[in-house]
Design a protein around this nucleic acid. Structure first.
Lengths: 339, 339
DNA sequence: CGATGCAATGTAAACCTTTACATCATCTGT
DNA sequence: ACAGATGATGTAAAGGTTTACATTGCATCG
């Protein structure tokens, strides 16, 4: 009794004294089967504990009702709350979500491609900022795909994410409104589309405030804590310090704050810092980090909605959905010049 | 050309001028097929771009070569590095890993049970500290299961995790060796097995140091940042302060540090704090948190190894694998009495 | 040379569903 | 009373794979 084979549709049919076809119909098209029969079938299902074998079902139907979400790093603080949005939306449409963890390993990527090729998932959601790997050859065979959180560089994959430009502009405008005129941008990049756009938001705000490009301090960085710390060192070398640091993301901002603290400065008295993303850690910094909040669950929800739409009707012209973020005011920005 | 159906084993067979049986053998038992045939088959596979349809394979074989990992919160900082250990070990044995995100929602748990019942996974790894839900009825039908990181309360599910008692004892001994005699334990619990054990390690160390139980300050807590902050307040109310805080985990320790800082104390001069887990954030606290490091990848690796073993030979007597953690010395512990 | 065994390959069943089509009974309208 | 429609159910094929068993050809041995 402990290890009996799971019940099949045939067991149910026998018990309910109908054919397997009727059982299948009773489950999926209840209105097509007489009420009395339906009851008998349901009873039989309850008795046997039958669950339909997803393998057989997918094989027959040619689809799995599963969406694969590919992420390089599950630990990314942005990931989990976006995932919740994705899952909720998927579930509402009868789809399940599988999470693929690539660890930025191309071999992993390839493994998951096999997964897709063998029909184990009907759609693909990319959290990675790039295609599963070398991106030609097999890419043509990819199922409907949507990029989320980070656009796929140099590709026409539809994208759902935050409005980076508008968000960054909000942040910069807040610094300006607080009285800052010397605002550094930390974390400039040539390759990451989202970061490019944040830079653009910064420029737009400063343009509007008539701050000459020559007066803007811009430091490169890859968006890590370490890069933020490094940027501070660099500015000290150059001996040109702003009154406020606008960081391309929260990780950079944390690095900047650490770097300034290590140099003995008192925040937010001596410098203002603003981030982007609103990672969980932002609340627990001293001072708590003022930042732009990613509308994570909205992003997740809409990305999944777009993907599911593309699934049934695969030629959407919609290429980008940008969601407007809010500024979260905490303690890391003050008026300048109190020093 | 864009949307052609994926190649099946039959396409390969036709092209290689053999039967489908031979193709299957060439893939899975290469030694059973003549060298020349094997070459022809491989060529045909390359040309057609054939990948075996996992659905059909699983259906036929009665197993999926997949392991389901159930976690209530993907965002848990402990989760991602354990996952890497799990994945690596699984992969080495030809298994894939699916991640299930329950969000502590019983309905989700149920959904994943269906997943298991329909043979979409051969084994179950619980990261949750409890069974997929109400834990009777369907539990009997569960595939081989192993709990990881947190034991399943009141159940005989095999468990792989850190040696809480030994780790906590190490921490307490380190405080003692640093000269502390008045050490509070923050985060006592009656229900969480791992936390109970940490408490025990604390007691063992203090027993050995001949510190009377009456002199030990023990404060309840559920292991959150908030609970740590609260515990500090409570101690201030009682007006009995230790020189060192031994916290049941890092989250609690962070709360304690925040609480002390909010009261205006200077750490680590005024108080010493030690944690348990070594979450990523521990490095970025000021002072950096001295703590006990979870041997995460080892835990992941061994948990998966145990599960896969149970898969083929399902009656292991081994019920618990405890892995010894190391102390990570940073800046949050100093000698007492400098105040 | 005939029997025996082995290596290489093929044939066909089985895994469990879904669903187009066939069948049958019953009802409607004339 | 009968043609035809309608509704409920059954039959059987198909989906792609693995594998037990059958077949074939060939070499080995007495």
């Amino acid at each position: 009794m402990s290890t009996q084979a799971p019940a099949t549709i045939e067991d149910v049919a026998r018990l309910a004294e109908v054919s397997i076809a009727t059982v299948s119909r009773a489950i999926h098209n209840p209105e097509k089967v007489a009420k009395s029969t339906r009851q008998r079938v349901n009873q039989a299902i309850a008795i046997t504990g039958y669950t339909t074998n997803a393998m057989a079902r997918s094989l027959r139907m040619g689809r799995s009702n599963m969406i694969l979400v590919l992420a390089p790093d599950i630990g990314d603080p942005n990931f989990s709350s976006i995932l919740i949005g994705l899952e909720n939306e998927a579930r509402a449409h009868g789809y399940g979500v599988l999470i693929g963890h690539t660890q930025n390993d191309p071999e992993r990527g390839l493994e998951y491609l096999k997964f897709l090729n063998s029909n184990q998932a009907d759609g693909l959601l990319l959290f990675t900022g790039h295609e599963p790997f070398g991106h030609q050859e097999m890419t043509q065979r990819l199922p409907p795909t949507v990029a989320v959180f980070e656009p796929v560089f140099g590709s026409r994959v539809p994208y759902v994410g935050v409005d980076d430009t508008a968000g960054a502009r909000k942040a910069a405008e807040y610094l300006l409104a607080s009285g800052h005129r010397s605002i550094a941008f930390i974390g400039d990049s040539k390759t990451r589309l989202g970061h490019l756009r944040r830079r653009k938001g910064y420029d737009l705000a400063l343009d509007a405030a008539r701050i000459a490009p020559a007066q803007r301090l811009v430091v490169d960085g890859e968006g890590t804590i370490e890069s933020g710390r490094l940027a501070v060192e660099q500015l000290f070398m150059r001996d040109t310090l702003p009154t406020a640091f606008m960081c391309v993301n929260d990780a950079t901002a944390i690095g900047v704050m650490n770097g300034l603290a290590a140099r003995g400065y008192d925040l937010p008295r001596d410098f203002s810092v603003i981030g982007f993303d609103d990672v969980p850690q932002a609340t627990y910094m001293t001072p708590a980090l003022t930042t732009v909040r990613q509308p994570r669950s909205a992003i997740g929800r809409q990305a999944m909605a777009l993907l599911l739409e593309n699934l049934t009707q695969p030629l959407t012209e919609q290429r980008e959905v940008l969601i407007m973020p809010d500024l979260v005011v905490r303690g890391s920005v003050t008026m300048p010049g109190k020093r």
